[in-house]
Design a protein around this nucleic acid. Sequence first.
RNA 1: GGUCCCAUCGUCUAGUGGCCUAGGACGCUGCCCUUUCACGGCGGAAACACGAGUUCGAACCUCGUUGGGAUCACCA
Length: 469
Amino acid sequence: MTVITRFAPSPTGFLHIGGARTALFNWLYARHHGGQFRLRIEDTDRARSTPEAMEAIVDGMKWLGLDWDGEIVYQSKQAGRHAEVASQLLAEGNAYYCYCTPEELTEMRETAKAEGRSIMYDGRWRDRDASEAPEGIDPVVRLKAPRQGETLIEDQVQGSVKFRNDQLDDMVLLRGDGSPTYMLSVVVDDHDMGITHIMRGDDHLNNAARQIQLYKAMDWDIPVFGHIPLIHGADGAKLSKRHGALGIDAYRDMGYLPEAIRNHLLRLGWSHGDDEFISTEQAIEWFDVDGLGKSPSRFDFKKLDNVNGHYMRQSDDQTLLDLALPGLTTAASRDLEPVDIERLTSAMPALKERAKSIPELIENALFLTDSRPLTMDDKSATAVAGDAPGLLAEISPLLAALEDWTREAVDACVRQFATDRDIKFGVIAQPLRAALTGRAKTPGIFDVLMILGQDESLARIADISNKPA
RNA sequence: GGUCCCAUCGUCUAGUGGCCUAGGACGCUGCCCUUUCACGGCGGAAACACGAGUUCGAACCUCGUUGGGAUCACCA
């Protein structure tokens, strides 16, 4: 049997982090088993669905690198088929018209709540004849669910979960206006698309029981369910669009790499021994339900930062440069010249070593695009005070005299200078760093010298050494 | 409130009856490396929610308690 999974978001908002993880797990599961991964947009709520949200979801999936098989299925386009299934259920006596008014329903709920029962429909139209129907009510169609016995969910993650059927009421299949509800369409579409495995948040666990009743009423094969624990916010409550969840685009904008997000999401609720950094190829090879945990997890930005730093160091320079360029231009408040790009390129190996995100990398790269004379931060201002300008004035001609501006030559020159003056290396290195960058957080001093080049280096040194003490 | 789910360091987790005086990672922290910042290396503090069973033996099995979460729409 070929495994077919799906991700079925409703386009009522952005693709949030929990949805992204659900998509990842389904994608991984399908890829691991050599099956298919489908994408279906659950837009049956036409009032709340927006094209912007659909676009955000598709963009988010693409950014995360989660490719789907076949065409995207739009649930709203299947409405005819959904109604058809409802008719069949009606004809076979497995569904019925219900003429309850909204007021009656509200009353039912209040009574149930007052009596401490589950809040549910009491089935009052189950066996009533249509001739008793009141005037002016568009009836809904409800499933005639079994009232005795229990419904068992054999869940890949949660194990066997049973619900007593008298706890499950007759759910609405078709609204008064004839449009299908989510409960009907999700089952019909999953069946029609041949979905074999349904992995979703465990907030759907209760729904699964009623959906199984519908599968049984239609005499369809029941797919394998796997209800994964939700991701909670820092306060331990469900992360939702209204509660702290950010769109996947927000993570992109914060400078996180898709591979880092993937890795971090993977480790939320799934593990493979003590492994932390797991490449996507490795994840596909390893991913299966036995690694899934049952308890909810919280999203930890600190750990994401660490993971992102790992992938930053792993990324190739050009990719990072492309990602940083827009922000760099903004931060520099001017157009970047070819010489800037050149410096940025040669600085990238040193820069990516000390940044956990793209914004941090940009911040650290700013010394390259700053215009002279440099503004000193506090530490640098201290470093160029006192004897520093004098020392810089002395080393400047030595550096200027170097014919080959190579790392070895520069290294030898500065070290020799320290030895000759009988000063510790740091005594000359610190003022140099300050003069060259104006900052405390920089690549190694020889890297800086090489990146800036001889002319720019000497000019920056001169800015400090020429200043009257 | 009814129903359902969950419960190991602050966080993510390993652990499936003896290998556990509970391991790893993030974060925190001491030291080392070192021209700054990172990276890296070596240490440290830090957890089996509680109570009963079952068993020769329980983080692992059972029950209860407590705590947390989800869900109860003509939303998805």
